[in-house]
Simulated assay, not measured.
Amino acid sequence: MSPDTTRPGRMTADEARLRLERERDTRLAELQAAAKGGWAADDHVLVVQKETVKRVLEEIEAAFRRLEEGSYGVCPGCGAVIPVERLEILPYARCCVPCGRRAA
């Protein structure tokens, strides 16, 4: 089920794509800044931060795939529509909050 404009409380595919592109651009800028800033490979905190940014980029790319497949905005755990408020905050959210808590 893809986001559309016919159902209240749903994010359109264009809105979702725009939010995902902004998130991706932000994360890529973070990685570029890290490379230019010369993050030390042996600084554990910086290495972990860099790995986290890369993981988020993978989540963003997965969200783009869900958008193309038509499953964006639908929780795979319970089948419920992920609230638009959650997707506005975390556009690459994979699942609803209750299912995310159960998975953690």
Rank of each mutant, 00 (worst) to 15 (best):
D42G: 00
A41Y: 03
P83M: 07
A63Q: 06
C96F: 03
E88I: 12
A104V: 13
R19V: 09
V47N: 05
G73H: 02
C95M: 15
G100A: 04
P91G: 09
G9E: 01
I89A: 01
A33S: 14
E51P: 11
C95T: 14
G77W: 02
L28K: 10
I89W: 01
I89M: 03
T6F: 09
G38M: 00
M11T: 06
G77H: 05
K50H: 14
G9R: 02
P76E: 15
R94S: 06
V97P: 08
R17G: 08
P83G: 05
T12H: 00
L46T: 09
C75R: 06
M1H: 13
A93P: 05
K54R: 15
A35K: 08
L28V: 15
R17V: 10
R10T: 05
L20I: 06
V53F: 10
V84T: 02
P83F: 05
R7P: 04
V56F: 06
T6P: 00
M1D: 10
A33H: 14
E21C: 09
E88M: 14
S71R: 14
V45D: 15
V97C: 08
A80K: 07
D43T: 08
K36D: 15
G9H: 01
G79W: 03
E15D: 00
R24H: 07
D25H: 12
D42E: 01
R65T: 13
Y72G: 03
S2T: 14
E69M: 10
T6H: 08
M11Q: 04
P76Y: 11
I82A: 04
E85F: 02
R24S: 13
W39A: 03
L28N: 15
R102K: 14
M11L: 06
T5H: 05
V84G: 00
R65N: 10
L20Q: 06
R102W: 04
F64P: 05
G9V: 02
I82S: 03
Y72R: 07
E61P: 06
E23M: 13
V45H: 12
A62P: 09
T26K: 14
A63F: 03
A33T: 15
S71I: 10
E61A: 15
C99W: 00
E69Y: 07
W39Y: 06
V53Y: 11
L67M: 10
E59A: 09
R10Y: 07
R24V: 08
R27W: 12
A16P: 02
A40H: 08
D43R: 12
V84A: 00
T52C: 11
V97M: 13
R7N: 09
L57E: 05
R65Y: 11
R94C: 06
V84K: 03
E23L: 15
A16N: 01
M1I: 12
I60S: 01
G100V: 00
M1V: 14
E61C: 06
L18Y: 12
V84C: 01
L57R: 08
V81E: 15
P8F: 12
L90R: 08
K50D: 13
C99F: 03
P3E: 07
V56S: 12
E61R: 14
G77K: 01
W39T: 08
S71A: 10
A34Q: 09
